[in-house]
Computed example of a mutant assay.
Amino acid sequence: MLKIGCHISIGKGFYHAGKEALSLGANTFQFFTRNPRGGKAKALNPEDLQNLHRLMKEEEFAPIFAHGSYTMNLASNKKDTRDFSKGLLKEDLERVEEISNCYYIFHPGSHVKQGVDAGIQQIIEALNEAIGESQSTPILLEGMSGKGTEIGGDLRELKKIIDGVEDSRRLGICIDTCHLYSAGYDIVDRLEEVLEEIDRLVGLERLKAVHLNDSKTAFHSKKDRHEVLGKGTIGEEALERIIRHPSLRHLPFNLETPNDLSGYEKEIKRLRKAWLKDV
């Protein structure tokens, strides 16, 4: 079965989010660990999580995605920003340990003209400080579009981060189709070559999750502008090839397209039908 979901608010609780995902035909969902533009996190409710875990088990959910805050920049050129971001990371990793069947995904950060190597070292330092021996939740670096001084638009940068972390057993990557295409990886006409590149540099075994989005901008634009599936420059046919590819079809996919819930429901229904073509 296709593992597909979308971004859902947990404002009314995790159990409510899980039920909402099911109502859309989803069997996973993504949520922000805290306000995406802020730093404060709502206290976890053990009973709410227990109800979510029961629902996920009963409905055979795929792993859900916990997405780190956009304000977290572990590669900042300002020490106070890095320290603040390290605090967010540590707290997030402690909190997600209480959520069963969950991946933690975050944007590596921007080096703010310090240079890529300096930024990568700061990210490595933060991960080494935050990852404890008891860490069980997979931590996924998200591949980026490469805009500005953003780190992660080049797969080699993700590889350097992973190689630099002392305990990298739980480290993996999440690819975003919009980001990947905008960064210059041609998933439309050269998907096999892109997957070979991922395998060579990072290892397909470390590819754990996919953000499925079309793109508003041209190939290699270095811009992060998500589009509704089939309405952008990647196109529906290429995106369907991605979800059906033998190396990817088992992974959990989450939509981050500019949609309301009814729009997500339509996309999920369409993708389920497309995924079954090769079954």
Rank of each mutant, 00 (worst) to 15 (best):
K3M: 11
K3I: 00
K3V: 00
K3A: 13
I4D: 10
I4V: 13
I4L: 14
I4Y: 07
G5V: 10
C6Y: 07
C6D: 07
I8P: 00
I8K: 02
I8W: 04
S9G: 02
S9M: 02
S9Q: 05
S9W: 04
S9R: 07
I10A: 02
I10N: 03
G11R: 02
G11D: 00
G11V: 02
K12Y: 11
K12N: 14
K12E: 12
K12F: 10
K12M: 09
K12W: 06
G13M: 07
G13Y: 10
G13K: 05
F14K: 05
Y15G: 02
Y15C: 12
Y15K: 03
Y15H: 14
H16D: 15
H16F: 15
H16L: 12
H16P: 05
A17G: 06
A17D: 07
G18V: 00
G18Q: 03
G18S: 06
G18R: 03
K19Q: 14
K19H: 03
E20V: 05
E20N: 05
E20K: 13
E20C: 09
A21K: 00
A21Y: 02
A21L: 02
L22F: 10
L22R: 10
L22T: 05
L22D: 08
L22G: 08
S23N: 12
S23E: 12
S23F: 11
S23T: 06
G25M: 11
G25L: 11
G25T: 06
G25A: 09
G25V: 05
G25H: 10
A26I: 03
A26G: 04
A26W: 05
A26R: 01
A26K: 01
N27T: 03
N27Q: 13
T28D: 10
T28S: 14
T28K: 05
T28F: 11
T28N: 14
F29G: 00
F29R: 00
Q30S: 14
Q30N: 12
Q30A: 15
F31S: 01
F31E: 01
F31D: 01
F32I: 04
F32L: 05
F32V: 03
F32T: 01
F32W: 13
F32D: 01
F32K: 06
F32M: 06
F32C: 04
T33P: 04
T33M: 15
R34M: 08
R34N: 02
R34F: 07
R34W: 03
R34E: 03
N35Q: 09
N35G: 12
N35M: 12
N35P: 04
N35D: 12
P36K: 09
P36T: 02
P36H: 09
P36S: 11
P36Q: 10
R37A: 13
R37D: 13
